[in-house]
Amino acid sequence: MALKDIDLEIQQGEFVSIIGHNGSGKSTLAKLFNALLLPTRGDVIVGGKNTKDGDKLWAIRQQVGMVFQNPDNQIVATTVEEDVAFGPENLGLSPDEIGRRVDEALALVGMEEHRHRATHLLSGGQKQRVAIAGVIAMRPSCIILDEPTSMLDPVGRREVLETVQRLNRQEGITVVLVTHFMEEAALAERVLVMADGGLALSGPPAEIFSEGEQMRQLRLDVPQIVQLAWELRRSGIPVPREIFSINELVDYLCQYA
């Protein structure tokens, strides 16, 4: 059994992250959101449509886009623009409309100047941004990203995360980010912690990540800054629980001094 008894609601426009160690069920959960997997028991309802309803399958997949872990294995075409066009082409849109959407999607991920480049020559971060553009071009209301940064270097990670945040803030797209990096999960408004196929914790980052011991028990990656904040709190410096970044901690400590 990969998942058990999960009750969950994600609102339009929310930024939710799902965190958990390998094998905790987070990827399985992600694939249930757009009917790549169907629940054995229970239901997944996307904008009023049940994923078990075969007639609604394509409407659901258009509405809930998905970006996968390995950037190489989700790019279909040999050039950037052709790949971004792949989704809209599957929707049977007119050539003009496809062209418009490709322009728009490439602009949103900042890849316009690479539109004619060969996809295999891009960096990991660029490939992931093309993959995101390919999803955006289908005008989804929600994007699920399944460990999109785990195979990228730090630069690529930053590129992808900035893009995702922009899409959420500026375009109002619902984002579900599956990750095992705590600093990535902390970007979300709400964090869901998975363990052994169940939902272990759920709440805003400040609340979740201040549970130091519990995080370690759940085999999660705790950034050094968060660890330091815990340690300082334990040693009597009342570092607020919302502090996750270096700058915030510097500001706080200087003020405290």
């Binding site: 790549l36 394509w58 997949r61 294995n73 279909v76 496809i98 999803v135």
Partner: peptide
Amino acid sequence: FRRADELAVAMEARCYRGGEGRTKMKQ
């Protein structure tokens, strides 16, 4: 084979269902 498997899932997630009803950006 692993790549093929993942690519197939990614294509399905992007609504690929064969040539039927598909259009082309470049005519």
